[in-house]
Design a binder for these strands. Structure first.
Lengths: 237, 237
DNA sequence: TCAAAAGTGTTTCTGCTACACCCATGC
DNA sequence: GCATGGGTGTAGCAGAAACACTTTTGA
């Protein structure tokens, strides 16, 4: 059933840069292509936009189909449309980035046959299909720029987490160290965390208190024009 | 000469939110539509992307065709793709925002027959065609957020300008007042302006010294990781 | 008892805020 | 000579940086 138009039209796809955090490293979720072009190359999950769905709906649908991940944080990143970015013809792609909570982290691996779906450390990326390395680079810039302004670090953690893990995420994303006492002061001062009466389990040292992110308080403060900038100095190493 | 595909494809357009500054107010350049849908409504300049041109090339071409403006600052804003945003069918639009120097400001008017092309004050906008009010709103948010981080104020001024005009732009965009002495200290401290031996002409008061933006110095400092944040407190009214 | 990370306060210093007067020019 | 905006310096204060030791727990 062919579709005919008076003027040529490009294909439109969506791609997702999915970041995850495994307690050590910032990771990206990639899929290994089966067909040409770029057969056997790793690529970002994504696919064609249906005619009757919103762009964000499309990228969420594609990601769930390909990885099983759903109900995670999404934000539009950039639209890539260089005429030759896909050898098959004109393809315009709206890229999103997504953040996965640590609790959902292993799920994506399990849902696949583990051969064509894999988390890669940002420090050890393969050469990707199409212009996906560029997309990934831009996504990294974006998350780096954003993490100081908007509390997106929480999106990478389970609902309950110790402050030290949050700090480690910030350090991982920003690529440096932060003074522990100042970090705690700053985060607590924002007043968007709930101090729980729960503690870490199964750790071979003093168990840390757990906190949870209070979305309501955050939304409230956002309305009031509160500024969430983390101004803390980034130390070397 | 029809074009046929196995699957349906959306149309892809680009739209430009062109901001200008006339010494008083922040303005946007709009075009009055001649045909349905939304005949006689004001709308953002823009149009269809050709199959062999880059997105940014497309929006620059469309803007020049429709307004005569060229060689101005452009940046991708957001891609709008709600299924029903255009009653004629699925249209996905990549929106850009652009900044026009004061010296080019009147040109856009002159190039048109002045009936279908007009600068509107941001404080007095009409109801626009399609979802263009949303696009404009997002562009305003973006420029507000951006002006503190990146010296884009210069893009709205002629090459040579007095500091007071720069300050006024900041005040206009941010919607408040800035302390004059502190503003000067902050801008000078960034060390990206050249102090000229020229002064304002034809003003009925002491003529202000002119400055120009030093793009090279800026690029240099950018590489070195210099932070251009203008942290100055915004005063009321 | 040792290892490993949790947790906590104060002093110092940097940098932003607040603020008022004289200067140059055109009318 | 007066109205209009141009141009300048400093003291006080808020908030970030720097910094080290005690606590808890499991092995």
């Amino acid at each position: 059933m062919p579709y005919t138009y008076d003027y040529p039209r490009p294909s439109v796809t969506v791609d997702a840069v999915v970041f995850g955090y495994d307690g050590t490293d910032l990771k990206v979720l990639l899929i290994q292509r089966k067909n040409n072009p770029y057969a056997d190359y790793w690529a970002l999950p994504g696919g064609f936009v249906d005619m009757d769905e919103d762009l964000e709906t499309a990228v969420k649908r594609e990601l769930e189909e390909e990885t099983g991940l759903k109900d995670i944080f999404f934000e539009q990143l950039f639209t890539f449309g260089a005429p030759n970015r896909d050898p098959r013809g004109r393809v315009i792609s709206i890229a999103y980035f997504a953040l996965v909570k640590k609790t959902d982290f292993h799920y994506a691996n399990a849902a696949s046959d583990a051969k064509d779906l894999k988390w890669f450390s940002m420090n050890n990326l393969p050469k990707l299909a199409f212009d996906h390395n560029d997309i990934l680079g831009l996504a990294l810039d974006r998350i780096r720029g954003k993490v100081r302004w908007q509390p997106i670090g929480f999106e990478l953690l389970p609902q309950k987490f110790p402050l030290s893990e949050l700090q480690h995420i910030y350090e991982t994303i920003l690529g440096g160290k932060l003074d522990k006492r100042n970090f705690r002061k700053n985060i607590i001062k924002m007043d968007i965390l709930t101090e729980l009466d729960e503690y870490q389990k199964d750790v071979s040292h003093r168990a840390a208190r757990l906190y949870s992110f209070d979305q309501k308080k955050y939304d409230q403060k956002l309305k009031e024009g509160f500024d969430f900038e983390l101004r803390q100095k980034l130390l070397k190493k």
